[in-house]
């Protein structure tokens, strides 16, 4: 029966390629401290977001376009770093961070508000005209987000899964530079997304370091490659525009994003979380 031999070979082929089994050595209670520390990280990021958004929206409201433009990308970073948690509140995610194509009439849609609506005004029209109410709403939404998350018991699977979710997000909707299409400040977002993902990984690293050293090293190497690649585009306190990204580096980022998404997708299982 040739079938039997074939199956034997097949099983071998798969075992060689399969990720490790979920670690039996991680107790759910081991995950408590990483989740607690992540909550503190999220809280700190949201404190920063509220502070930065205040300065940003103040500039928008007084019509100081240059200052507002300058503050736009750095303000977003606190949001992007904790996006897996921030977007648990879909109403706020829509009002804070939706893109024009999420709306039927795109840029002209009255429902198009939040960061990207202001970005559109500042960078495409070079004007803060009519952005006052949008700025007020953004400030209110960000403050609301902060208080909602303060009272949120973080679902551990969202925390651990967030590391991969951030990478999936970048892979599916960001690597092409479509997020900040008016300001072209995508590299800031990338850095924040990667930082947020790596933070989660760093927090759970002690739980898998011993049993899964090769995995940890591989993920670290991917993050390092990303950091080194993005570092080439640092300028001042931020980054160059997305256009500066060479095709080669975009590929390097894309491959590492995919690899991280693939590798980090096993993290929940490795920690015994469904």
């Amino acid at each position: 029966m040739p079938k039997l031999t074939l199956r034997g070979a097949a099983a071998l082929a798969f075992l060689a390629a399969a990720p490790g089994l979920a670690s039996a050595n991680v107790s759910p209670l081991d995950i408590v401290q990483p989740v607690a520390d992540y909550k503190i990280y999220v809280s700190e990021k949201l404190d920063q977001l509220v502070t930065d958004t205040k300065a940003f929206t103040d500039a928008v409201k007084v019509g100081d376009v240059e200052t507002a433009k300058h503050l736009f990308p750095s303000t977003r970073m606190s949001y992007e770093a904790v996006e897996p948690i921030a977007e648990l509140f879909s109403d706020l995610d829509a009002s804070i961070d939706s893109r024009a194509d999420d709306h039927e009439k795109a840029e002209e849609d009255p429902g198009f508000i939040g960061f990207h609506r202001i970005e559109y005004g500042l960078f495409s029209k070079n004007s803060a005209e009519g952005l006052g109410p949008v700025a007020d709403k953004l400030m209110a939404d960000v403050t609301d987000l902060q208080s909602r998350i303060e009272n949120l018991v973080l679902p551990p699977e969202k925390v651990v899964g967030g590391a991969a979710a951030l990478m999936e997000e970048v892979a599916a909707t960001k690597i092409s530079g479509e997020e900040n299409r008016y300001s072209r400040t995508d590299l800031w977002d990338f850095q924040a997304n990667f930082d947020g993902s790596r933070k989660i990984f760093d927090l759970v690293r002690p739980l898998i370091q011993t049993d899964d050293a090769a995995f940890v090293a591989k993920v670290d190497a991917s993050f390092d490659t990303v950091d080194e690649t993005l570092a080439k585009y640092r300028e001042g306190d931020g980054f160059k525009l997305y256009e500066a990204l060479t095709d080669d580096d975009r590929r390097v980022l894309a491959a590492n994003v995919n690899t991280l998404a693939e590798d980090l997708s096993t993290l929940r299982g490795k920690l015994g979380l469904d």
Partner: peptide, 24 residues
Amino acid sequence: TERFAFLAVGGPVPELDPKLPPPD
């Protein structure tokens, strides 16, 4: 080569811990 060879003959997909993404 390894993937082509396996997929050409097929076979069972190993079962992993359901907490992990499946290998296939």
